[in-house]
C-alpha cells in the first residue's frame, strides 16, 4: 500500500498571515434531500454531527459537516476513517435517494491564520469579509481568483479553505501572494 500524501505536504508560508496546506482530511461529498429524515439520521450517526443549517458548518473535533448547496453536504472525518465513515453512511442511507462519494484525495484544505485573515481572503474572493457579514461558522462557496473554493471561519482569526486538489499549488501561490509582507490594506 502506498503512503497517502496531501497535495502540498503541509507547505506553509508566514507573511501577513500564516498560510498552511492543512494536510489530509477525510471528506465525503453527500448529495440528497437534506430535509429527509433518512439523510439526517444517517449524517448524525456516521458524521457525529447534525445536518448544518444553510450556509453553515458544524464541527465536533475532526468530524463535521459543511453545507455546500441546498442538496449537498461535505462530511469531514479523520483521513484514515473515511472509508469506514463512507460505508456507514451508505449503509445508513439504505434505499434513500442519495449519493455519497469519498473525495478525500480529490480536495485540498488550506488554513489561513492570523489577525489579517479577513483582509487576505478579501483580496482574492468576491465576498464581504467584514466581521458583521461573515461570521465564524459561516461557509461560503465562491471563487479565489480563477478557481472554485469553499471558505469558512473557524474563529475570528482562522479560516479554512477547501478547493480541488488539482489547483492546490495555484491556491497556495494565491494565498502567499495576497499575504506577502508589505501588502497590508488595513480594511478590517
Amino acid at each position: 500500500m502506498s503512503e497517502p500524501v496531501s497535495a502540498l505536504s503541509n507547505a506553509s508560508f508566514d507573511g501577513l498571515v500564516h498560510v498552511q496546506e492543512a494536510g489530509l482530511h477525510g471528506m465525503i461529498a453527500l448529495r440528497g434531500d437534506l430535509d429527509s429524515e433518512a439523510l439526517q439520521s444517517a449524517v448524525t450517526n456516521s458524521a457525529g454531527v447534525g445536518v448544518p443549517a444553510p450556509r453553515t458548518v458544524v464541527f465536533d473535533g475532526a468530524r463535521g459537516a459543511a453545507w455546500m448547496s441546498p442538496d449537498e453536504l461535505l462530511v469531514f472525518c479523520p483521513y484514515p476513517e473515511a472509508g469506514a465513515t463512507l460505508a456507514q453512511l451508505t449503509d445508513a442511507l439504505g434505499g434513500a435517494h442519495a449519493l455519497a462519494v469519498d473525495v478525500s484525495d480529490a480536495r485540498a484544505v488550506f488554513e489561513v491564520r492570523g489577525p489579517r485573515m479577513r483582509e487576505v481572503i478579501a483580496k482574492l474572493a468576491p465576498v464581504d469579509m467584514s466581521a458583521a457579514a461573515f461570521q465564524p461558522g459561516t461557509i461560503r462557496r465562491t471563487r479565489f481568483a480563477q478557481v472554485a473554493a469553499a471558505v469558512w471561519l473557524v474563529d475570528d482569526a482562522e479560516a479554512r479553505i477547501v478547493c480541488f486538489r488539482s489547483v492546490a499549488p495555484y491556491m497556495f501561490a494565491l494565498l502567499c501572494t495576497a499575504a506577502a509582507p508589505g501588502g497590508e490594506v488595513g480594511m478590517f
Binding site: P54, R55, S69, P70, P126, D128, R140, R141, T142, R143
Partner: peptide, 11 residues
C-alpha cells in the same frame, strides 16, 4: 434564491 448568497457577476 436557492442558497441565499448575494453573488456578484463573476460568480
Amino acid at each position: 434564491p436557492y442558497c441565499g448568497v448575494k453573488a456578484e457577476e463573476t460568480e
